[in-house]
C-alpha cells in the first residue's frame, strides 16, 4: 500500500473496533504503530496530554500490559469478564497528507460495556491519526473524546 484510499481508511477504523468487540486484543494491538498512542482526554477540548490529566494516555507498552492483564488468572475485576459493543457512524476522512504520511478520520460512536447485570453506555468521538508503515495502515494516535468526559464514572475496563 502506498497511499490508502478513503475506503481503506474507513474499513480500517471499522475493523479496529470489531477486533475490540470480539476480544481479539492481540490483533488489535498489532494495529498500533510502535510509537502509537491511545488517548482518552479528561477535559473537554483538551490539547495537552502531558501536563493535563487524561483518563488514558498510553503507549504500546502500557496497552500491552492491559491486554496481558485481561488474560490473567488473578485479574479479579475481570471475573467474570466484561463485554463490549461499538456502534459507529461511518468514519469521515478529515485530512489526507500523503507527503507527511498522515491520514485523519473522525468517527462518532456509542460504546456499551457490560459486566454481570450492569450495562453502561458512553457516547464518544474517535479521532484516528493513521500512517502507512511497511505497507500497512497503523495507528499513530487514537483519541477518544467521551461526551461527558469530566463526569464521575465507575470502572471502564475495556477499550472504546
Amino acid at each position: 500500500m502506498t497511499a490508502p484510499t478513503d475506503q481503506q481508511l474507513i474499513d480500517f477504523v471499522v475493523r479496529e473496533t470489531r477486533l475490540i468487540d470480539q476480544h481479539r486484543f492481540e490483533e488489535w494491538l498489532d494495529l498500533f504503530a510502535e510509537d502509537g498512542f491511545y488517548w482518552m482526554p479528561l477535559e473537554w477540548g483538551q490539547t495537552d496530554p502531558r501536563l493535563t490529566t487524561s483518563l488514558m494516555y498510553e503507549d504500546k507498552l502500557l496497552l500491552k500490559i492491559r491486554v496481558e492483564r485481561l488474560k490473567g488468572n488473578r485479574t479479579f475485576s475481570q471475573k467474570p469478564k466484561s463485554r463490549c459493543h461499538h456502534v459507529l457512524q461511518t468514519p469521515q476522512v478529515d485530512s489526507r497528507n500523503e507527503a507527511a504520511n498522515e491520514y485523519v478520520t473522525w468517527t462518532p460512536m456509542h460504546y456499551v460495556e457490560t459486566r454481570l447485570d450492569q450495562q453502561d453506555l458512553y457516547a464518544a468521538w474517535a479521532t484516528h491519526t493513521l500512517a502507512v508503515v511497511d505497507g500497512a495502515l497503523k495507528i499513530k494516535l487514537k483519541r477518544v473524546d467521551i461526551v461527558n468526559c469530566d463526569a464521575a464514572f465507575g470502572n471502564i475496563q475495556l477499550f472504546m
Binding site: 501536563l51 493535563t52 483518563l55 488514558m56 475485576s77 464521575a152 470502572n155
Partner: peptide, 29 residues
Amino acid sequence: PDMLLERTLMYNRLINAPTSVVGHDDLEM
C-alpha cells in the same frame, strides 16, 4: 521542573482513574 507534574499526572491516571487497572481491582474488592 514540569517533569514532576508529568509524573504526578501519570501516577494519578495509572492508579486512580476509572480507567486504571489498579483502581479496577481495588473497586472490585
